[in-house]
């Protein structure tokens, strides 16, 4: 037996969305075709859950909320690198995954997708940024900086510094000092 079916995709999508959002307990309003307004903000977990639950119907979330997760990832890293007195001995990846309550693989993929840069590079950049600050503003020696930022050795810090900035820590220090003298003279 063959049945003829007529369907309205718009209605189908709306119903699926409603079911899934209700299921996840997310209050929302429809604001137009292909757009809904969520009351409040998403946690990264909620976002991921929603993405999975509607994904199987071929419905995708686009862009913006991902940006806010990426923003959160950045905040977690900056907080860790700049606010903590000393970086933890444990792996930074484990720390981030725990703070975000998401799988590190997912975090890292999402980060690359949105920023076109690797999360690892971002972390290195932040650590080196912090190293610069400690060298210049707090006059710390490389040994102290390496310890504080949990580098295995000063050589490791120096080589990562050089790789990231193209300058050695000593060159960097000299340039900043010369700049200061220039302003004063």
């Amino acid at each position: 037996m063959k049945l003829q079916i007529k369907y309205d995709i718009n209605i189908a999508c709306k119903v699926i969305l409603k079911e899934q959002l209700d299921l996840l307990g997310i209050p929302y309003q429809e604001t137009g075709l292909g757009e809904i307004m969520v009351n409040g903000t998403f946690t990264p977990e909620q976002y991921k859950e929603l993405e999975l639950s509607i994904g199987k119907y071929g419905i995708e979330l686009i862009d913006d909320p991902k940006n806010s997760i990426v923003q959160k990832i950045k905040e977690v890293i900056i907080e860790l690198v700049f606010k903590e007195d000393k970086l933890p001995e444990s792996k930074i990846s484990a720390y981030i995954a725990e703070k975000m309550n998401l799988n590190y693989g997912y975090i890292s993929r999402l980060f690359s997708e949105i920023t076109y840069t690797h999360l690892e590079n971002f972390i290195i950049l932040q650590r080196i940024e912090r190293a610069k600050q400690l060298i210049i503003e707090e006059n710390m020696s490389l040994t102290e900086v390496a310890w504080k930022l949990n580098y295995s050795s000063t050589a490791h810090l120096s080589s990562q510094f050089k790789k990231t900035t193209g300058l050695t820590p000593t060159q960097f220090q000299r340039i900043i000092q010369k700049r200061k003298n220039l302003v004063l003279s």
């Binding site: 790789k163 193209g166 340039i175």
Partner: peptide, 24 residues
């Protein structure tokens, strides 16, 4: 990318030095 990061993250511009050549 580096410039974008300095812009969007509010990193200190005074410390923004980056030298790039074939080796890095």
């Amino acid at each position: 990318n580096r410039n974008w990061q300095y812009h969007t993250l509010g990193l200190k511009r005074e410390n923004f030095l980056f030298s790039i050549n074939e080796s890095n």
